[in-house]
Design a protein around this nucleic acid. Sequence first.
DNA 1: GGTGAAAACACTCTCAG
DNA 2: CTGAGAGTGTTTTCACC
Lengths: 152, 152
Amino acid sequence: MNFDETDKNLLLFLQEDAKQTTKELSYKLGLSVTAVYERIKKLENSGVISKYVALLDKHKIERNFVVLCHVKLSQHKKEYVLQFEKEIMTLPEVTECFHVSGDYDYILKICLKDIADYRNFMVTKLTTLQHIASTHSSFMISEVKNTTAIVL
Amino acid sequence: MNFDETDKNLLLFLQEDAKQTTKELSYKLGLSVTAVYERIKKLENSGVISKYVALLDKHKIERNFVVLCHVKLSQHKKEYVLQFEKEIMTLPEVTECFHVSGDYDYILKICLKDIADYRNFMVTKLTTLQHIASTHSSFMISEVKNTTAIVL
DNA sequence: GGTGAAAACACTCTCAG
DNA sequence: CTGAGAGTGTTTTCACC
């Protein structure tokens, strides 16, 4: 798909605040309401905009103890990889899990209440998974930048 | 703040799809439109719901080359830390940056088009920052799980 | 806490140009 | 792309359980 400057600006506005009305956006973009409406529908229907979501304040819901956990598997057999990934999917504490290159196989982002919950999670959930060779956790000290928006 | 089961379900629904009407939500929750409306307003006004955003498909916008980069500073002087964080904030390619405990000081998530853009970013942007001792990058092979929703 | 209804308003969506 | 109109959802208030 091809994006002109108006599309790029529109996508940035919607990534910052999805509850703006087409009227507000039409003013910011210098277009008519209908023109903006049709551009948004095109971006939605083509799948460029995948979904609209509410973001929560991690402090207010007591999930601001964030851990980035590196995981290494004992073997890279297809069966082991698939089983590990399947089990990770079911853990609500794990909000992100990326299969990566390098010393470790996976990097997980885990959102918890405090270090007691972290200990509980590691002992009763993560380390009970099969085929894990080792893990290495980094605790988040502060969130320097954390955006869902991608600038085009 | 205190959340009952209805609030928890409501927050989950809104984290999955923020464009649902209060009518749809009232049906799913077994409440009246007014009751749902007032709960949502309360969650918005208290800051539990911090914002509503559009999420984009990284493949469709050609930013699906994701790198998780570990950065170590040469010294932890307050001045160096603040300068590094300030500069990171201005880089649009960096969508997330966490100050963490452990061997490295920061973990960054960087979204780019391809490995050529990665090379360019490292050479012309990241490694030109002051006070960086070392970096270690892991390329994302696959996204096992990537959600913005936190289950309460 | 909750319901249901009514009214005013704003927005979405379609259509002719 | 624009402007206008019809349809729909939002928002508020109210009496009441």
